[in-house]
Nucleic acid binder design. Structure first.
Length: 326
DNA sequence: CGGGTTTGACCTGCGC
DNA sequence: GCGCAGGTCAAACCCG
């Protein structure tokens, strides 16, 4: 981490030649005015020094916060990987015991097997949240919705499909807001590091922009779904709704070689800074629970940002541009 | 030729 | 029971 860098930058104040490296003032005919100006400059210097001290303090504080966030993130990541490993082990056990079922479903007629596939879909529980964002983008998976309860009944056969779907829906639904070019109507893929295959599109009632349906195409057993639709309020914002969790790691990047075909992260490179949280603010009331959620989101974002070299570079350039101006 | 996208049809739950 | 709307399917098409 570069908190040390941040901390180090607080000492920039020492290197600042406030007032600039001026030549010795020429002997002018107006000494009174000169004195007045120098005293004025002294005030400015004092003010600047105070400001620098304040900024330095703030920097230290932020560095501490960053350290805490990183520690938290590492801790969570460890937990997640542990849980994913456990879930993968459980999955392999279950799949080996239910292979006959999957094989029979594949050869059925066109329409009917749908419920079968849905059954297998919901029967295949997703492991805990895999935080997207390792792709260097700020694609933070944000749990949305009042309940974060785990879908515990997915292993058991269930009579009502809807009930099961609802149960699973309650488990993992996250939303991602991505700023996109409004002129490009084809922008229906949110770059999040995973491979997606589009399987449908629909115009919904409340939004004139069509909603695209995606499925994870990286792992056939992965049942994550994604809906992408432009925001009705702000057409520059793509709203990606994730349903479920990936039961696999993020696919390896193949950058530089032109990338894969579309559907993948390389299909569309959303240029602008993603994750617009203000939309979420609009949607959610200010209950204590939601505030906590938001805080959690902010923490995740901060952790993601601190690990992102691009962000770091941008921050460095932004800071270096500002410091002389101050 | 294989894999992804498009798109019209179909399925299903829900409200009236 | 009927209509509506969201979600899904799959044939046709496209592309590298």
């Amino acid at each position: 981490m570069d908190e040390q860098w941040m901390i180090g930058q607080t000492s920039l104040s020492l290197g600042l030649n406030v007032g600039g490296p001026r030549r010795a003032p020429p002997v002018t005919r107006d000494h009174v005015e000169e004195d007045f100006m120098s005293s004025k400059k002294n005030h400015v210097v004092e003010a600047l020094e105070a400001e620098l001290q304040r900024v330095g303090k703030e920097n230290r504080k932020l560095s501490d916060m960053l350290r805490a966030l990183v520690a938290k993130y590492s801790d969570l990541q460890g937990k997640v990987s542990g849980m994913m490993a456990a879930a993968a082990a459980a999955n392999s056990h279950r799949q080996s015991s239910t292979t006959s079922e999957g094989g029979s479903a594949a050869s059925a007629t066109r329409k009917r097997p749908r419920s079968d596939s849905l059954d297998t879909a919901s029967r295949n529980p997703s492991p805990p949240l895999a935080v997207a964002g390792s792709s260097g983008r700020f694609a933070v998976s944000v749990p949305v919705g009042p309940d974060q309860a785990e879908c515990t009944s997915v292993h058991e056969p269930c009579n009502s499909k809807r009930v099961r779907v609802d149960e699973c829906k309650a488990s993992r639904v996250s939303k991602l807001y991505v700023h996109a070019d409004p002129a490009d109507l084809s922008l229906q893929v949110v770059k999040d590091g995973y491979q997606w295959r589009k399987y449908g599109q629909k115009v919904t009632k409340d939004n004139p922009c069509p909603r695209a349906y995606f499925r994870c195409s990286f792992a056939p057993s992965c049942q994550v779904k994604k809906k992408v639709q432009r925001s009705a309020e702000d057409k520059t914002v793509l709203v990606a709704t994730y349903d479920g969790d990936h039961n696999h790691a993020q696919p390896p990047k193949q950058q530089g070689s032109g990338g894969r075909k579309s559907g993948d992260a390389a299909a569309v490179c959303v240029s602008a800074a993603p994750v617009l949280v203000q939309q979420q603010r609009k949607q959610e009331a200010s209950t204590a629970e939601q505030v906590a959620d938001r805080k959690n989101l902010a923490e995740q974002m901060a952790a993601t940002l601190t690990r992102d070299p691009g962000f770091k570079a941008a921050l460095v350039s932004a800071l270096s541009g500002r410091i002389p101006a101050a």
